[in-house]
């Protein structure tokens, strides 16, 4: 896959950081504002898709990136399960129990473990979508050779 024109590359350089930070904001404020892990994870993967589309497939070592994204996805889903099991062992003895203090409604640090679940799901969704996209790009590169 070829890269695009210098205008597209420059605009990508300018915009990409803001989209990434906005994705992190959507994930971490998921318990206060609309959004959450699913939407923020899609934003994070969209950043990397934009990077690969505008700079071409030579900018990154795609195969290594794909392996790493797959590993990160596995680690994130493991973290999600681990939090649920910790909720089972500590406190109320309920699977998916909320074992941290709830705090004040509307504060950033509140709602117990829900922000941690949001972060785990956000990383998982982002890594999954990025893995699917990179697998397609690698496949198209290989059959075009």
């Amino acid at each position: 896959m070829q890269g695009m024109s210098p205008i597209v590359k420059k605009v990508t350089q300018l915009v990409m950081g803001f989209i990434f930070v906005y994705g992190i904001y959507v994930i971490t404020h998921g318990h206060l504002t609309p959004g959450g892990g699913f939407a923020g994870g899609a934003f994070l993967s969209g950043t990397f898709i934009l990077l690969v589309l505008s700079f071409g497939s030579n900018i990154l070592n795609l195969r290594r990136e794909e392996e790493e994204a797959s590993e990160i996805e596995g680690l994130a889903i493991f973290t999600f399960l681990l939090l649920a099991v910790v909720g089972f062992l500590i406190g109320m003895r309920v699977f998916f129990g909320n074992f941290l203090p709830k705090g004040q409604i509307g504060e950033l640090i509140s709602a117990g473990v829900i922000p941690l679940y949001n972060i785990a799901v956000g990383v998982e969704v982002g890594a999954a979508l990025l893995t699917i996209f990179l697998a397609l790009v690698i496949y198209k590169e290989e059959i075009s050779k």
Binding site: F38, A128, L129, I132, Y139
Partner: peptide
């Protein structure tokens, strides 16, 4: 529906592959 949308994307990607 929020979970169903993301599952829909994953199954669609598998069909497309």
């Amino acid at each position: 529906v929020l979970t169903a949308i993301v599952i829909g994307l994953a199954t669609k990607a598998m069909l497309l592959s």
